[in-house]
Design a protein around this nucleic acid. Structure first.
Lengths: 338, 338
DNA sequence: GCGACTCGTGAGAGCGCTCTCTCGAGGACA
DNA sequence: TGTCCTCGAGAGAGCGCTCTCACGAGTCGC
């Protein structure tokens, strides 16, 4: 007499209890309609009584699916993870969308450089059906390697070079240009920028937006200091900017955190915002509403980036076609800093 | 002739290529020492050439392990997820520690009330070996239900009632008492508090710490307004506090975010910090270093909470004993606000 | 030189599930 | 009444792995 070992009921157990075959129970569990109602009812009762839950390992062994999606945050992303509301927001968006589709979210945090191989190995093992990659640096080879490994992958943010996998991004440049027009409309003429790192597309495109916006101003020379998207770098960049050009009357910072840093430096040095210097940020994270003064910023739909990422990867693993690029709009949110 | 379907090599493929048996290849893959060096070498080469990666589903079907750990963030936690550095910090800590142990992190975000059953079902399915639960509300029945389901579980934060599962927490009260002594040492006599929600242990204990600290001050009446740990509530609570008692000269806020909110209200109403009103927060998140003025706060080791959670759950799933409670120390970090 | 013992290897069962294929029962039609 | 078809249910193979057990080749002692 075969005994189910420690409690855990299997299909077999349920089948015996309901007086049906394993196959029929499987049909009920998977929602086939070809089962006679009375038998189905009997099986459902048995499932409920025994507390049967299908074993996902056994299932995916035969279906070759795992119903889970990996979200990979490369080392460069985890570095800012705790200080920035961007990734938590994206994670939440992805998580919610996957939950609706009854998929699991496996978080792969690449805290070190050496995680690269581990991740590749993991994905090769097909523990996930697809991958959402929060690729930040353009030079990242991971997206391409994953594609070559034959897994579905979607990235957040356009890669620097040629895009070989579908991505979700936002209109960086046009959002910044709107910010620049706003500043110019306010009568500002000496507009500087605190840019993001130039090895990231977000950094580059926001700078490009600044430069394009500046062209409206005849003969205005660009005034750029680079930061790393984080607060401290914003403070320092603002300082350098004022040293170089004391009569700056506006500054566009490529992230809200850096804008907040700039605000602090300006206050410390006795400049009034927006009277002396107008400040505009980018992201519209929660913090932007609470800076002093509240930050005018370019809003990007962080949560939607997450849900769209999930949507695309789900379609890909389902074998559907997806557009190679989804670019979400950004909008200028005017508060008090400009 | 049996063909491996689409590329993916199996143990069998490797075995044939190396002229060995499936069992021996398995031994090499799993690091058994009883394989003759030359055969092992041959097998390793075959593995490398074929790019063989074990199928985790097949493996866990027989081992009954999945080598992955779920981190559950209940709905109450996801609400603050994007605005607070606490959970990202914990996630990072957990993630790093699990990575070292070569385990995967499965993130279960319970965005809605109805996720409860889904999570329970998921855990019942044994897709994970153990569960780390960021339980916030004391009334949460999830820890107990999970325990009854027979999974190993560790929670972050002591539950409100009797603790039925091991937990990691910090010394809330003594940290707050240190803050209170600091304020009293500064000569402050009218000390108010912005407490956290009283259905969370963190909220209660920090309030208890305030009340205990206040006893040093003969005849001082408690002055309490409740917030929800988030910034907005701190702003509002500070307002109510000043209405009730305009001559407050210090305030302890149960979170840095609320302290920051209080700072804003104080500034708006023309009170100088720390001259007129001293402010102390709790958490020591990144933001605390950047408030105006920089926040004196009770530091809790967020990252370590994460790593300790991971450590404990790993020991539990390995069948080892763990102490029912680990309580990490908190320390007062003095900056400029008090 | 023969039995006892070690040590490394292979055969094979079985983890729990899905899915194809087969089969039997019943209905429709001539 | 007999044949053909439809439809629902069961038998059984097999997904890729681990692990027990059996077995053959050496090694050693007497």
């Amino acid at each position: 007499m075969k005994q189910t070992p420690a409690g855990r009921p299997t299909l077999e157990t349920v089948a015996r209890a309901a007086g049906a075959s394993r196959a029929t129970v499987s049909r009920v569990v998977n929602g086939s309609t070809t089962v006679r109602p009375d038998i189905e009812e009997r099986i459902r009762r048995a499932i409920a009584e025994l507390g049967y839950v299908p074993n996902p390992a056994a299932r995916s062994l035969v279906t070759q699916r795992t119903d889970s999606i990996a979200l990979i945050l490369p080392e460069s992303a985890t570095r800012v993870f705790s200080d920035d509301a961007f990734f938590p927001g994206v994670i939440r968006g992805v998580g919610e969308a996957l939950e609706k589709a009854d998929k699991q979210l496996v978080l792969l945090l690449a805290s070190t450089r050496s995680s690269h191989d581990r991740i590749l190995r993991y994905v090769h093992g097909r523990t996930v059906d697809g991958v959402v990659l929060a690729s930040m640096h353009g030079a990242d080879t991971l997206p391409e390697e994953l594609r070559l490994a034959g897994v579905s992958v979607v990235t957040s943010g356009r890669p620097l070079g040629e895009a070989t996998v579908p991505y979700i991004d936002v209109e960086h440049a046009s959002g910044v240009e709107a910010a620049m027009r706003h500043l110019i409309g306010l009568g500002r003429r000496r507009i500087a920028t605190i840019s993001g790192p130039q090895d990231m597309v977000a950094g580059r495109e926001r700078l490009a937006g600044y430069l394009a916006g500046l062209e409206e101003l005849e003969g205005a020379a660009p005034l750029v200091e680079e930061g790393d998207f984080m607060r401290q770098s914003g403070m320092e960049a603002m300082e350098r900017l004022l040293e170089r050009e004391p009569d700056i009357d506006a500054v566009f910072a490529a992230s809200d955190l850096m804008a907040d840093g700039a605000l602090r430096t300006l206050r410390r040095l006795g400049r009034r915002v927006p009277d002396d210097v107008a400040v505009i940020g980018f992201d519209d994270v929660e913090t932007a509403r609470f800076t002093d003064p509240p930050l005018t910023t370019v809003h990007q739909p962080i949560h939607e980036i997450g849900t769209r990422l999930a949507e695309q990867i789900l379609r890909l693993v389902a074998g559907e076609e997806v557009e190679p690029a989804v670019v979400l709009p950004t909008t200028l949110v005017v508060r008090d800093s400009a």
